[in-house]
């Protein structure tokens, strides 16, 4: 186990220096935001590039999750705990984005459910869930 961790140590060190470079001196880490951006672009790319309708939905989910992460990251207060009021807790993360993103998660679930339901119906109607094949059929219908 330790061997694996050690193997990645140089990579991690490289990442740390990269992060420090990107953040500039004295600013909080931007790693989280970088993850958001990478996830967002990954999801977006899947939506655009894949012809499989289910994969598009997966991509859409990744895209949305990146936004959830984005909201949660922005709620973080340096040194703050979870926003649960208890004795002795002075500093806590901003709870509002958490609440907002709960709503967004619900919306995301609804979208995914509806999208998948549509894919099932499309599969029944077209016998395929590949977008390029569907488009070929539709173009034929048009002419």
């Amino acid at each position: 186990m330790q061997g694996i961790v050690d193997a990645f140590a140089p990579l991690y060190a490289m990442w740390q220096s990269f992060e420090a470079f990107m953040a500039g001196p004295g600013s909080p880490g931007l790693l989280g935001y970088w993850i958001v951006v990478v996830l967002m672009m990954t999801g977006f790319y899947i939506v655009i590039a894949h012809d499989n309708l289910v994969k598009k939905i997966v991509g859409l989910n990744v895209f949305q999750v990146s936004v959830f992460l984005f909201y949660i990251l922005m709620a973080k207060v340096s040194g703050g705990t979870a926003p649960i009021l208890a004795d002795g807790i002075e500093k806590y993360a901003n709870p509002l984005p958490h609440v907002l993103i709960l709503t967004a998660i619900v919306v995301g679930v609804a979208t995914t459910a509806l999208g998948l339901a549509l894919v099932v119906r499309i599969r029944n109607a077209y016998d395929t869930i590949e977008d390029d094949e569907i488009q070929a059929v539709e173009e034929e219908e048009d002419t």
Binding site: F44, V47, L53, K56, L60, F63, Q64, V67, V107, T111, L114, G115, L118, V119, R121, I122, A125, Y126, I134, E138, E141
Partner: peptide, 19 residues
């Protein structure tokens, strides 16, 4: 049946827009 694909495409685009 094309209503289904139209709806699906709108769903993808619309969700991207809202996000």
């Amino acid at each position: 049946r094309r209503a289904l694909t139209a709806s699906y495409r709108y769903l993808i685009m619309g969700t991207l827009g809202a996000t």
